[in-house]
């Protein structure tokens, strides 16, 4: 197994649990989408998977190595194998695309050459080649702030690839893009999966795109896994249950619409029922 999450739980304050007993595994070369309503814990899960956030209990195992116990150098060593892209791209806006991609080489460099930006010819050529791969070969020296949203996400993908990651995590990669651009970005990710055998875990609240591009869906609602199975298995009924968990939160905060109120009534029991059987 490439990535395993075992009984992962996370609580931000005493009352609200962000994640409760989340377990799943991802095989090498798989494209998995985490779907679910806002507040389901999707982003928290990604942050735990790449080590930005520590979980309260449970295990995160990447290629047989425990990320959740690792500290300091050990943790850094595991993090180096993970590439992440984000909804807001998280690029340095004032510098060129090439420099942004080169930043991914920093973990392997000594302090002084690192801060002075002395990356060497080989790294520069690799970064340029990666930018070509994502379709930006004519924008190497362009500052990031002059690019469109889709182009920025391509730079971020090139930066993640620069690490030769064993796994690519994508946190809402198309949420701030228009539909056409979003589709193109997912086509690029799909291509990377098929041609390079890259393992991808993406979270998205764009259900249609998740269904169209991924091999497997992971339904997250109220911090629990409500579905784990192939895209075809996620029927109307299953999806309704996943997305109804948002209705519960709204019911608690007291501003739900009549329609979602019905949903809650219909599916309230199901939430408490055990997670659907895994294959």
């Amino acid at each position: 197994m490439m990535l395993q999450a075992e009984h992962v739980s996370k609580q931000f304050d005493r009352r609200v649990a962000a994640l409760t007993d989340v377990s799943f595994s991802v095989a090498k070369g798989e494209f998995v989408s985490i779907i679910g309503p806002s507040g389901a814990g999707k982003t928290t899960l990604i942050r735990i998977l790449n080590g930005s956030e520590a979980c309260d209990s449970g295990q995160v195992i990447l290629s047989g190595q425990h990320l959740e116990q690792a500290r300091g150098r050990e943790k850094t060593r595991i993090q180096k194998m993970i590439g992440t892209i984000y909804q807001d791209f998280a690029l340095v806006e004032n510098v060129s695309t090439l420099q942004n991609v080169l930043n991914a080489a920093l973990p392997d460099m000594a302090f002084l050459p690192g801060i002075l930006g002395l990356f060497g010819k080989a790294r520069r050529e690799e970064a340029a080649a990666l930018l070509g791969r994502v379709g930006l070969s004519d924008k190497l020296e362009e500052p990031v702030h002059s690019l469109s949203g889709g182009q920025k996400q391509r730079v971020a993908i090139a930066r993640a690839l620069m690490r030769h990651p064993q796994i690519l995590l994508a946190d809402e990669p198309v949420a701030s893009l228009d539909p056409v651009t979003g589709q193109q970005i997912l086509e690029l990710l799909k291509e990377l999966q098929e041609q390079d055998g890259l393992t991808i875990v993406m979270n998205s609240h764009n259900l249609a795109l998740s269904q169209a591009f991924s091999d497997r869906l992971l339904g997250l609602g109220g911090g629990r896994i409500l579905y784990d199975g192939p895209v075809s298995g996620a029927t109307e009924e299953v999806l309704e249950r996943i997305y109804a968990s948002a209705g519960i939160e709204m019911a608690v905060s007291g501003d739900e619409t009549a329609a979602s109120g019905e949903n809650v009534a219909a599916s309230g029991k199901d939430i408490a029922s055990p997670v659907e059987e895994r294959k």
Binding site: N50, G51, S52, T76, R77, I78, Q79, K80, I82, G83, T84, Y86, D88, F89, A90, L91, V92, E93, N94, V95, Q99, N100, N103, A104, L106, P107, M109, F111, G114, I115, G117, A156, R159, A160, R163
Partner: peptide, 24 residues
């Protein structure tokens, strides 16, 4: 955000500061 992104891939904070915060 760019600083955090670099840290998440294992960049030591000092280097991430110089390369991601300083240009801004």
């Amino acid at each position: 955000r760019p600083y955090q992104a670099l840290c998440a891939m294992g960049t030591p904070p000092g280097r991430a500061y110089f390369r991601a915060i300083l240009p801004e």
